[in-house]
Design a protein around this nucleic acid. Structure first.
Lengths: 346, 346
DNA sequence: TTTTAACACGAAAACGTTTTCGTAGTGATT
DNA sequence: AATCACTACGAAAACGTTTTCGTGTTAAAA
């Protein structure tokens, strides 16, 4: 087991100085052809590769970006990572991941772990707990230390940085308008409590669509679920909530849900209660998930183009990293959502 | 925007030496209480945190592990990552990801990018292309340079390193035996070409189960699909293949598929052809995916405990990293699979 | 008063690079 | 013979740490 070879070892072996070796390997004109060839041949033989850490220290640049997300076992987030990794790799960067697990504390810890020189910049989607507590000091500190941040999806106006979001409002509005045009008269909304910004925006889109078509807003058709409960594990609880919704509102003929799980569960409950989807009830979800495509009937959804979000976020971050002049201007890129019609709508 | 504060700056500011600052912050007995307090107070005020890169260079240890996987938008792999991240974080390590995208070249590039000092060790699942080409030189080189590797799931006996795998053979055998005990007489197998090791092992498990119950092996019941084709995109092609299987074998009453997509698609095709699942045909898949749980009917599967695999892999790697005596002994941990019975079996 | 020991701190090396600057040696020009 | 300009290389600093070792000061012991 031979350790990695360093400049110093090559220098000693060939009886020249470290500087000479370094210059020879970078083909400097200062070095004679003879010496260059000797050094390069030796380096190739021993498979010399410059030590990244040393380079990072010298250049004060790691060529690594950190991505912090609430959860990785989740199609949306893993697709975002794929996008980030794609662009990062193309542009010579590595990607290091941190999972906040929806916890404020873990988000802070993770950021502190990485902010101490390990990375050049952050790509982040806020944890639910952070959104709830509205404590953003760790972001301010990071930005103040000159480390750029790009936020995506779950963003917050209090933090000044580049952002990439999906047009939640428009996407929801279009989806609900589609239901209305498909002749739904009583469209239920299954959403989250308002502190999750995306939930709030999608709710607003729902309201806007109703308004545009002069439909009455019926408060009893809106089911706001507590997103603290992990319904993925606690599926029964979710089904009960939705079943209650159907039972107290017999006339529901359309459902818009702000995520995949809600939409899918609604569809399943509806069918169990004897409704036909889409003949009796039409359903649209908001997601980039994989369940929608494979469910029976397959679920119409508003696609968020997660991978594209990742690509844009990485692009924004790297642009900022490589533009030495640190102009203090921040942009928010909005990714157009797309309504994908499948079998759950007519 | 103030840059991160360094030992040198603190030293200059307080008019002491760098050594004194360093020692004071680490509470060395060499330093007087007075000085310690002064330094520590100053450091706290300016939020001093040691630079990780400098530490890594000094200690020749990055406390970062690299994980290289073929694909991230995939429940199995993202669950593995979650497990890796969990253990890594607990033990003070960061995780850096590389995606091979099932490509040999990208796998090599990614490894080279990370092997140059950026990380202390690798966790890897081989890309399909690597399995097919059987070119493992990049692993040998890495291991030779003293960087430990832990492989998981898609492993290969040619490489000497720690491994974490699921008992594909046993899992498949148990699943098929379950079908037999549930009175299936003609069990079809939907699998991949043999170069994917897990596919081969699961196929062997299927054969073993038949043998144990003295059932005849009928070659026409085995459908070997070309895993090069991305059936996730090309769903129609997959459905056609499976439909063909059903049409040429009218007596099929059980299906064992080596992954989620195959199993799910088989179930859908069967129902479209008028079969009832599980009454006419029972289906079991092999996966940790999310589709199985939410499909209708929900799909019985052999669970691989992906997260546990990740945890074990990370544990093995860090153990090796922290045991200075590099004993050249490698172990292979086998994770027991678990048959999860849902609605697609009786 | 001299020696000793404890105390409190600083200098310097090391990790592996890159880069600036200085300088021997050589051959050509005055 | 003295100056000059190259050529080809080496020394050293810098990035930010930690740690070993050396040393000046003071107080206690002889």
């Amino acid at each position: 087991m031979k350790r990695k070879v360093t400049l110093k070892q090559i220098a000693r072996e060939l009886d020249v100085s470290i500087s000479t070796v370094s210059k020879a390997l970078r083909n400097s004109v200062e070095i004679s052809e003879d010496t260059k060839q000797k050094v390069q041949a030796f380096a190739k033989l021993y498979n010399y590769k410059p030590n990244n850490i040393a380079l990072s220290l010298k250049n004060r640049k790691t060529n690594t970006i950190g991505i912090i997300i609430p959860e990785i076992v989740h199609h949306f987030f893993s697709k975002v990572i794929r996008g980030v990794e794609l662009v990062a790799n193309q542009r010579g960067y590595n990607v290091i991941i941190g999972l906040s697990n929806e916890s404020f504390a873990k988000e802070v810890i993770n950021m502190e772990m990485l902010a101490n020189g390990s990375i050049d910049g952050f790509i982040i989607s806020l944890s639910k707990e952070t959104l709830q507590q509205q404590d953003y000091h760790h972001f301010d500190e990071t930005i103040n230390q000159g480390m750029p941040i790009v936020m995506f999806d779950r963003v917050v106006s209090e933090i000044q940085c580049d952002k990439v979001i999906v047009d939640d409002f428009e996407g929801a509005k279009n989806a609900v308008e589609k239901l209305i045009e498909n002749n739904c008269k009583n469209i239920a909304l299954i959403t989250t409590k308002d502190y999750v910004s995306v939930g709030r925006l999608r709710t607003q889109g729902y309201l806007e669509a109703l308004k545009n078509y002069s439909l009455d807003l019926k408060a009893e058709l809106i089911l706001k679920l507590d997103d603290d409960i992990n319904y993925e594990v606690n599926l029964d609880a979710l089904e009960k909530e939705i079943e209650q919704l159907f039972k107290t509102n017999k006339t529901i003929d359309g459902i818009f849900a702000v995520n995949e799980l809600y939409a899918l569960t609604a569809m399943r409950v509806a069918r169990r209660l004897g409704f036909n989807v889409p003949d009796d009830i039409q359903v649209i979800g908001f997601t980039d998930g994989v369940l929608s495509k494979h469910s029976t009937p397959s679920l119409s959804t508003v696609s968020q183009h997660a991978q594209l979000m990742g690509e844009k976020a990485a692009g924004l971050l790297i642009d900022k990293l490589e533009n030495d002049e640190d102009e203090e201007s921040y942009q928010t890129q909005i990714i157009a959502s797309e309504l994908i019609e499948r079998e759950s709508t007519k």
